[in-house]
């Protein structure tokens, strides 16, 4: 974790992956600058998760090459694993263990000194201190996802993959996750996130790549992508509050959700 590289934190070249006749990735190329947030935007089945699984060494590409934090994913996967963490689409927390025990477990597996202190610190950062001694299975969807992301930060990996981090979350929980992601990037972590929500990419990403049918059909900053379309027309439209504005105004913003009721997460996220 000491190698400070100014080369791209993630580099993907001509990566392909097929399952029998199904060509999931047909030659994907992109770079992610260190310390930036990169959003991989695409509809379901576009190949986002497959790409994340290749980058996090869970899957091997058929051809092409990819490196993360300067390490090639196929020749030195162990070095890649030391540099990354993965938060999957379905929150991978251990429901039988408490939130704190989950964090201690990951800290021990990452061979950190003082796992207990790391766990307490992360619980506090993610507003989970009070819930820390409850089993994770009793958490709401948003709390589970916060715990999941907290687990990803144990040991301060320089590159974090967030695979659809807000799928299945309510609007408040989404905003909380967004704030966390922004803070992480501010602290210098490189983040690759996949999402099918356009507004999420718009809110968070320094650069956006659109993955469609297994290739990147366009990428750039939000401003660059906007320029692809004819310049803005001036139209007079009555500004209606969106339903999200109304919802957030009624339930009182996003800050007081730390004591969410203990709804079993399964009920909300399915």
């Amino acid at each position: 974790m000491t190698t400070q590289t100014r080369e791209p934190a993630i580099s993907v070249r001509a990566v392909t992956k097929s399952y029998q006749d199904l060509h999931v990735l047909r030659g994907v190329d992109f770079d992610v600058a260190a310390g930036s947030i990169f959003a991989l935007l695409g509809s379901n089945g576009a190949g986002k998760t497959t790409l994340v699984r290749i980058l996090s060494t869970l899957l091997k590409a058929d051809s092409g090459s990819a490196s993360v934090h300067g390490f090639d994913v196929s020749s030195v996967p162990a070095d890649v694993r030391r540099s990354i963490s993965l938060t999957g689409q379905f929150a991978a927390v251990d429901g039988v263990l408490t939130g704190r025990e989950n964090l201690v477990l990951i800290a021990k597996l990452r061979h950190q000194r003082n796992p207990g202190a790391i766990a307490d610190d992360l619980l506090a950062r993610f507003s989970l201190t009070e819930a820390g001694n409850r089993r994770a299975a009793t958490y709401s969807g948003g709390m589970r996802r916060r715990l999941d992301i907290a687990m990803s930060l144990v040991g301060k990996p320089p590159v974090v993959f967030l695979d659809e981090p807000t799928t299945g979350l309510d609007p408040q929980a989404r905003i909380e996750v967004w704030q966390t992601v922004k803070q992480l990037a501010k602290d210098g972590t490189t983040i690759l996130l996949t999402t099918q929500y356009l507004d999420e990419a718009e809110q968070l990403a320094d650069r956006i790549a659109i993955l469609h049918k297994g290739t990147i059909i366009q990428h750039g900053t939000l401003a660059e992508l906007r320029q692809l379309l004819p310049s803005a027309k001036v139209e007079y439209v009555e500004k209606q509050p969106t339903l999200e504005d109304v919802f957030l105004a009624l339930v009182g913003g996003s800050s007081d959700t730390t004591d969410e009721a203990a709804i079993p997460a399964g009920e909300e996220s399915r």
Binding site: S56, L58, R81, L86, G88, A92, L109, M151
Partner: peptide, 9 residues
Amino acid sequence: GIFERFQSM
């Protein structure tokens, strides 16, 4: 999903 988390560590 915890299995995959372990495998990515």
